[in-house]
Design a protein around this nucleic acid. Sequence first.
RNA 1: GGUCCAUUCGUCUAGUGGCUAGGACGUCAGGUUUUCAUCCUGGUAACAGGGGUUCGAUUCCCCUAUGGACUACCA
Length: 521
Amino acid sequence: MYVAGFVYICIYINRFNQNMEQVRVRFAPSPTGPLHIGGVRTALYNYLFAKKNSGTFILRIEDTDQARYVEGAEEYIIESLEWCGIVVDEGVREGGNYGPYRQSERKAIYRQYADILIDNGDAYYAFDTPEKLESLRSEAEKAGKTFIYNTEVRGELINSLSLGEAEWRQKLDRGEPYVIRYKMSYNEDIHFDDIIRGHIVVNTGTLDDKVLFKSDGMPTYHLAHLVDDHLMKISHVIRGEEWLASLPLHIMMYRSFGWNPPLFAHLPLLLKPDGKGKLSKRDGDKMGFPVFPLFWPYGETAKGYRDDGYYPEPFINMLALLGWNPGTEQEIFSMDELINTFSIERVGKSGSRFDPEKAKWFNHQYLQNKTNNQLALEFRDFLRAHGYQDDIVRLEALVGMVKERVSFVKDIWEQTDFFFKAPDTYDQEAVKKRWKEDSGLLLTELRALLENTIDFSSTANETVIKSWIEKNGYNTGAIMNAFRLVIVGSLRGPHMFDIISWLGKAETLKRIDKGVSLLSK
RNA sequence: GGUCCAUUCGUCUAGUGGCUAGGACGUCAGGUUUUCAUCCUGGUAACAGGGGUUCGAUUCCCCUAUGGACUACCA
């Protein structure tokens, strides 16, 4: 028992080391719509693992389902990965020695492998119509059971196992539609390992004879991905947890083919922020955050992170930490740091609830590290959208004043709108609280002071005004709040002296005049 | 229903057979500030439940509960 266990572990370790020699991983989405952040995370973990181990990251398009194919989805997926900074080594655009990388273009390959299984006796032809199977399923359901196409019922259905050879060959020759099914063995325990979940045992009695080859001449996922993974020399299959249930089948198939399976790692799911279940587009719509990297422009549109103002770096940073952590207290990672630190063993086992608030915080952190020049350049577009413009040096100064209080470039406008337009109305609450009987007189006095100032810089004004306040024994808070009210229109914004210095003397005096006349009535 | 997987603060998570169970987001309070925000400081808050094993379990085992995935000629 112990010896068997030891031998088993040795074989496993040996295989593990073999696979580590040439790491080749793939991200294999099907082009059925926009790429979900769950998918992005799967791609990211594959990418990080590949780069960490000097391996190859492959993008394979799994378009074997012609009915679900969506125009534009492939381009969208590629563009999404590009935006994220996930670089594909081999794929539909990049090419490579193991192409083609689109399954629809590999159609001819799959049939041969299906035939190998048939010759082995590990697969067979089945002629049952979808309608017949459907009715068997609903019948079983009515009886409180589940219909499974397996050893128990195989003999009673129409296939090359129940029919005489002459009979099924005749059906084939006549061109009757058929599928190829895997002949699952009965009552056998299969043992396999998952890097994240450890050792798992499943009895084949609970498995069914999965369709490998469809009547439309296309393989199903089970056949296609397995053949491709083998032919493309994939060393590690890192994919979503939804595949864990069909891993026993895949292990059996590797055995039938006589191939060494790759190593597997099944990633936990991303769950919705509230309640239960996995994250979906609906949650994003409902709670006002995106679940896709990019805006999806086809058919039913969906907003994306890029278009919502997120930078790719914090988006990736946030996603990397959702289900994985380095075991240290570091939270902010560049892509290179992620690559250096990543390991599959440190991916968690349980599903992670997505928290949009934390995503915002990551963006905030990254934005703080941008230079004023970068932000000013980006902000200029938002400014134009509001019908304003200014020179880049002035915008740099402006951005510098509010940078630390925003999470997105688009937020800058909310913090700086009053720089571009004098207030027309004044916040009533603030007026009530801060505009006193003598405010008008005091501001008129202040106006005279500013009018005679030569140096209108922030520091110069601060010195002048503060000494004036002190000399006259005025109340600083009373003056400054009233001052802010006429300049900004409400009690918010950066340092007052920075504001008026940016506005300039003429505009400052104008706003005092306007405010005093409107508020002193 | 069946099979498989999972379960540490509200959320993301660290961690260990003996610790005051650590960090981050959020939240709350205080401080700084001429305002708001930022920022700083501090607080709040967790080992799903029940049995074992053990001198001792959050940690190891079993059961229960809860959640999830799969159960297509979809991936």
